[in-house]
Computed example of a mutant assay.
Amino acid sequence: MRAVVVAEPGGPDVLRVEDVPAPEPGPGEVLVTVVAAGVNRADLMQREGHYPPPPGASETIGLEVSGHVTALGPDVDGLEVGQPCVALLAGGGYAEQVVVPAGQAVAPPPGYDLVDAAGVLEVAATVWSTLAYAHLASGETFLVHGGAGGIGSFAIQYAKALGATVIATAGSEAKLGHCRDLGADHAFSYRDDWAAQIRGVTDGRGVDVVLDNMGAKYLEAHVGLLAPDGRLVVIGFQGGRTGTIDLGALLAKRGTVAAISLRGRPLDQKADICRHVAAEVWPLLADGTIRPTPLTTYALDDVADAHRALESGDNVGKIVLKVA
């Protein structure tokens, strides 16, 4: 089968499509023939050598796919050969076939074809699990950065569906308009003093929940923006890994700072998240509460161009590799 191979850590040019041995499903696993694979920022970090897969996972990049179940390993119930699915992975997605733990393969969202569906599960699972952890409630205020990207676009809409007031940041007027179109109550450029603007629109109270993909760069500002009993949940570190927290400021707010990830969770936790997403989030996609974000597709052979596009920061919505 054909798969993307990274010969050595580096820029997009290190990505190569080569023939590799096809995987075989083991106990509790299914083999999926891939139609399309989502492209995520974690993929860029893995390509650069900064985000290795968990022990035992495929070294091939790719955290989500759509396709058809091709073979069942022993002890698999609830899935059938030929069934369309979307799957959450710890690795292996940039390939014509991938082995998936059965609990992490679910039916695609109703009304989505398999190319459109390829970029939905990872962002839905990330956002659902993060906001469930943070206990975002109706009437609270929610902040997400990169509101025009895959995670941000989904988080804006899901937080609105939960009844929150949503604040988003983005880097251009077009992207800010996109955030507002998705339902953001306030959208500010991260090139301006966004923290001061947020204090202004919240009358100085701040925000109840921050979904933070920046890490160290915004850590001090985020702690300063937390409302009483506010929760800062770090899911990425595009702005660096090491920062300093004023514990006195955090204590005064009774604030919480947490860092969670999806990729390295135990299989039972990821299967539970996938079940919740299919049961609670797919209906919101089906009835239009959460709208599809813009999709940019690339052929598998053009994977380097797909990485360049995501790295540029110019893309709106999700990038997907068409594999089949």
Rank of each mutant, 00 (worst) to 15 (best):
V81I: 12
L131S: 06
D77Y: 15
A164G: 09
S129W: 05
P55I: 12
G56W: 10
L143K: 02
Q104C: 15
A57E: 08
T141E: 09
K160I: 09
V100P: 02
G146L: 12
Q83F: 06
A102P: 01
I167H: 04
S129C: 12
V144M: 04
T165E: 08
L114E: 06
P108K: 13
L79T: 10
V144S: 02
G146H: 07
A124V: 04
V120C: 10
L88S: 06
S58F: 13
V69L: 08
S66C: 07
I167G: 03
V99E: 06
Y112L: 11
V99T: 15
G62T: 05
D77W: 10
A148V: 00
L143R: 04
G82D: 10
S138H: 15
T126G: 09
V65A: 05
T165D: 03
Q104W: 09
F142P: 11
Y112F: 14
A117T: 10
D116C: 12
I151F: 00
L89E: 01
L79P: 08
H145G: 13
L131H: 09
A117N: 05
P55Q: 10
A117Q: 05
I156N: 00
V86G: 05
G62W: 02
G78M: 11
G82M: 11
V115F: 03
L88R: 04
G93Q: 01
G150L: 08
Q97W: 05
V123L: 04
L114I: 09
G146V: 12
G147T: 07
S129D: 13
G62A: 07
G62L: 07
G163K: 08
L162C: 09
D113T: 10
D75I: 11
C85S: 14
V76W: 00
E64C: 11
A57G: 12
H145E: 07
I156C: 02
L114S: 04
L131K: 07
H145F: 09
A118F: 03
V76K: 01
D77Q: 13
K160L: 14
A107F: 10
G111Y: 07
T165P: 00
G78K: 11
L136D: 05
A134Y: 01
A107G: 14
